[in-house]
Amino acid sequence: MNWREIAVTVSSAGEEAVADLFYQLGCPGVSVEDPELLQSYVESGNWDYHDFGEIALTGTSVVKGYICEDHELQPKLRQLDEGLKELLQRFPEWVLQVKGLTVQEEDWATSWKAYFKPVRIGRHFLIKPSWEEVTPLPEDIILELDPGMAFGTGTHATTSLCLETLEETVKPDMRIFDLGTGSGILAIAAAKLGAQVEAIDLDSVAVKVAQENVELNQVADRISVRQGDLGTVLQGQADLVVANIIADVILMLIPDLKRIMKEDGEFLASGIIGHRSSDVEAGLGEHGLEVLEKKEDSGWVLLRARWQRASL
């Protein structure tokens, strides 16, 4: 199968907005090459293992999305073009350049690996790419990962916010639903904290990658990975429902929480770009949920919510 790689060079301030456009198109893979973020990780000490040499700061980022070259390609390209034009109208000072080329699956699945290094998230998580060697500390919880073409390496703010919050909230033997599991990183993290996890995704590639990562981390006894949507896959109710997707999809999921989340359960919603946070907060309130916590990182937002006591 061929994929169209669309590379958008944009002023650093527009990185999240362009990434959100790709997510709205349903791209199963989005990557961001941000020199400033790369340098910040190197300087912070979060990356124990790296060899990038001197990093040139350009004031721009390159956001890449991958779209299948099928019958939906042209409509999606038109939608992307319209979204980019709207951004330029709102922010005429931004640099915005677009390039596209056709790539094979194997090229896409390996080209970004130079940028995926071992990284520490939260107090104990050490994310280890499967092809890298590390020397863990005694208290480290290792998440070994080969994301392939599935979103979720832990280095993006949306995923790291979820990992940090899972570390704070997951208790042994909790039942967790991971909606839109991607690479399976959040499900694996929750399982290593002692939870039982049901991970689902609509995308067959993501399901395959997630299952492989589950087996790589030896947590298959605590995680089931299935393809499908809420209505056809999930039965019963969870103590914690996690959705690291995008705002529009989260808004569509909220009405189903009554069926799949316990009365004393909690909902973690991430993948929300900053300017859409108020929409999601309003949607939660309309369906009887209250926001317990709001976390922000690099223009992205995570919301932790539970049922309002009066609504039970």
Results as ranks from 00 to 15, higher is better:
151 F>W: 03
139 E>A: 08
219 V>Y: 12
239 D>V: 05
6 I>Q: 09
286 E>H: 07
309 R>M: 15
248 D>P: 11
221 D>A: 12
205 V>N: 15
294 K>E: 15
98 V>D: 01
200 I>Q: 06
250 I>S: 11
46 N>L: 14
271 G>H: 10
131 W>K: 04
182 G>N: 01
81 D>T: 13
265 G>N: 00
165 T>D: 06
5 E>N: 02
229 D>W: 08
99 K>G: 02
221 D>P: 06
131 W>M: 00
58 T>N: 09
168 E>K: 10
52 F>I: 12
106 E>H: 11
253 L>T: 07
207 V>E: 15
247 A>C: 11
13 A>Q: 13
310 A>Q: 10
222 R>P: 09
219 V>M: 10
184 G>T: 01
25 L>C: 00
7 A>S: 09
207 V>F: 11
94 W>Q: 04
8 V>G: 08
285 G>N: 04
10 V>L: 14
161 L>G: 04
296 E>A: 15
254 I>P: 10
151 F>H: 01
308 Q>H: 05
217 N>E: 11
280 V>N: 06
107 D>V: 11
28 P>R: 03
100 G>S: 13
76 K>C: 00
224 S>Q: 14
276 R>H: 09
90 R>N: 08
261 M>C: 01
195 A>K: 08
237 Q>F: 01
222 R>D: 12
305 A>M: 08
